[in-house]
């Protein structure tokens, strides 16, 4: 069953439809937020707010957009609100990076790859990082523009810059 049908079923009172939607998108949304906010607690709070917004606005969902795009746009808006209140952090990428660095002596090749990738991601601006994370999540340029309330050309420009750096890193590790 497609996401669109599930959210409409939930809006009509089928609570099991929501369970399935949550199961499908819980982890991708958490990872998306987790890579851009300071702590697990804040990340979970933002995710909680986003899902509550979905619950409250299920009847307002427009089938013209994919459910996942709608969900991530809500999450992006919550994230922006959080940044406005508390300032933008360097992101959780540091923690992952540090963990990888600590294990460098006995690291596997995959961990080394991860280390390189995260190094590159660290050097990107937050907006470029978000664009690349959304691209990895499978969104199209138009959908990323919709989620981040940006122009499609701006998204392409951010991705071009980010991927140029990542490409170099991936080629170096392979």
């Amino acid at each position: 069953m497609r996401d669109r049908a599930l959210i409409q079923a939930y809006a009509n009172g089928n609570s099991r439809a929501f369970d399935e939607l949550y199961r499908r998108h819980r982890t991708p949304l958490l990872v998306f937020l987790r890579r851009q906010c300071d702590s697990v607690a804040i990340c979970e709070e933002l995710a909680h707010d986003a899902w509550i917004a979905v619950i409250n606005q299920a009847s307002l969902y427009q089938p013209s957009a994919k459910f996942k795009t709608w969900l991530f746009r809500i999450a992006h808006n919550r994230l922006v609100d959080h940044w406005r209140k508390h300032g933008r952090s360097a992101g959780v990428l540091f923690e992952e990076l540090n963990e990888a660095a600590l294990r460098r002596d006995d690291q596997s090749s995959r961990e080394f790859e991860l280390n390189q990738i995260l190094n590159i991601l660290e050097s990107l601006s937050p907006k470029q990082t978000e664009a690349i994370l959304l691209k990895i999540e499978g969104f199209s340029h138009a959908e990323i523009a919709d989620i981040t309330s940006s122009k499609q050309e701006t998204v392409k420009s951010r991705l071009r810059y980010a991927t140029r750096h990542l490409k170099v890193a991936l080629e170096a590790t392979s």
Binding site: R26, T27, L30, R35, E44, A47, H48, I52, I55, L114
Partner: peptide, 28 residues
């Protein structure tokens, strides 16, 4: 693939279910 196999993704996917319980309960 690399990011999916990262420790962060594993951590998130195996995170405690308090959040899940709250959200699903609110939906029901």
């Amino acid at each position: 693939t690399i990011l999916a196999a990262s420790s962060l993704t594993e951590e998130v996917s195996q995170s405690p279910s308090d959040l899940d319980t709250q959200i699903l309960q609110a939906a029901h």
